[in-house]
Write a protein that binds this DNA or RNA. Structure first.
Lengths: 276, 276
DNA sequence: TGGCTTCGGTGCGCTAGCGTACACAACAAG
DNA sequence: CTTGTTGTGTACGCTAGCGCACCGAAGCCA
């Protein structure tokens, strides 16, 4: 459980283990981010000089109430968005990887974050400063449209998680969580402690231990201290509640449209340049 | 519990009781909606002819998957946004009254609703058709800005509810729910069955009964079949978890800004007309 | 090597909330 | 007034998950 007295306790608890994580020193290209990749080339080129590379270190947090509302396009790593309750407990209600962007809500409202952002898996991102983002946004171009469309993804996800919290067993939710983590990581091995999973799900660490024990017994995963290797993805999906699939398909539905739009735009762009 | 076999079971169960509810036949003015009211006068005037009055009857639902993505600005009544799970259980994760608008998410994404909309309390709304809304939106005027700012409200609310579902007792959640209902209704009496409250919270009807029993024993409410009269609002707030206050203050924070902006714009508008 | 810290596994009693079942009260329609 | 329907109150056993406590194992640092 996260301690009440300070948000930093979470930071403290999880930061040090960063040492044991191989931090990808390789600076990844912005188009590793699926949203940036979906931009038509001319828009993308124009945006490039505005983007600033940042590394995400585990435990890095954007505290609720921060007034900055920069956008961060993830190229790798995993960031969770969580609420801390007055009783010291936490729940993460959305997870973002290289398919998305962090900071949309505070960017739209201009009001600063209402939730904590926790880096669960180290990685890197490209920052678009709030003022530049605002200017881009007001051009009302493809980027603006893309961001607005993307907005629906966290909304769906959070709502589904709320319902999932209510109605599905911890066993099922662990599966959901492992799968969504797996989707955002290059290998089949998750580098995370059970204790942190518990904090993210908002359940006891012991509960996670037994649930994961069952999964290993069933041969779906292999676990070591601080690691979970997935052996049978389909098996996990079978044990999982529908929530994982719903959230994922919602995103894919939206994103497929983006890809189509991008192709179309790129074709028309290259046609235009042929005529120029 | 909502039955699995059909969304309509919910409809069926709750529709007929509409007869016993006095449906406000009075057609309310659009500016009863706080977002429309926050528009500067010239914008508001321009928008008026585009708005179409609709009544919301209890049980009216916009099914998940519907392709229409019109906006509905509520002037009265209460609409909940809920997920139906495969196991037939439901949870509402956001509630909207005359402070907000329905259909933002599907409007932004253009993808249709991902959740069900349930009318909990009858009322009326003004519809802005999706195509007109899109055109308005692309003017990038005050309305667009307002809508984007408003977006953050349901996001915060849903996230808070997700955490609340996990960590707070049914007793506390009932208080939260009654309060948020009360905020959106003219009198101190809620016209709703315990069974429907249970569906919205995603808990058993019996659980609601005992929780409400405690509240009446404590003298905070008085209850009749299908009615809950709130006698001691402060008492409810004291028993409630922090979630209610957090969501509410988030909205007020955003909305206060809007009111300020509106005053400023109206002053500059009237100044402009003086010079014209 | 030994000592320290963090992580993970296990057991036990407890409680909130679930599922089920049933009875009664309020209301509607005839 | 009768009859059917829907909403509400109550009770009882069950289970998932909690809180707590403790111990061993893995890794870190010297």
């Amino acid at each position: 459980m996260l301690e009440h007295h300070s948000v930093h306790s979470c930071l403290d608890r999880h930061t040090h283990s960063a040492k044991s994580w191989r931090v990808a020193s390789l600076e990844q290209a912005p188009e590793q981010n699926r949203l940036l990749a979906a931009l038509p080339v001319n828009e993308y080129q124009r945006l490039l000089p505005l983007l600033e590379h940042v590394s995400l270190l585990p435990g890095w947090m954007n505290h609720a109430g921060d007034q900055r509302s920069d956008l961060h396009f993830l190229t790798s790593g995993i960031v969770a968005r969580a609420h801390l309750m007055q009783n010291g407990k936490a729940t993460a209600f959305a997870v973002t990887g290289n398919e998305g962007v962090i900071g949309i809500a505070s960017f739209l409202s201009g009001l600063g974050l209402t939730s904590e952002m926790v880096v669960l898996s180290p990685g890197s991102a490209y920052r678009l400063r709030a003022d530049l983002a605002r200017r881009e946004f007001e051009r009302h171009g493809v980027l603006a449209d893309l961001l607005l469309r993307y907005c629906v993804t966290p909304i769906t996800e959070i709502g589904q998680n709320a319902a999932c919290n209510r109605h599905h067993s911890v066993d099922q939710q662990i599966c959901r969580w492992i799968l969504s983590f797996l989707d955002r990581v290059p290998s089949n091995e998750l580098i995370i402690t059970q204790s942190l999973i518990a904090d993210m799900l908002g359940v006891r660490r012991e509960g996670v231990t037994v649930a994961i024990g069952k999964l290993e017994k069933a041969g779906l995963i292999h676990r070591r201290r601080g690691h979970i290797a997935v052996l049978d993805r389909a098996g996990l999906e079978a044990r999982c509640c529908e929530c994982y699939a719903i959230v994922r398909s919602q995103y894919e539905r939206g994103f497929r449209l983006e890809v189509i739009a991008r192709d179309r735009l790129q074709r028309s762009a290259s046609r235009a340049s042929r005529f120029a």
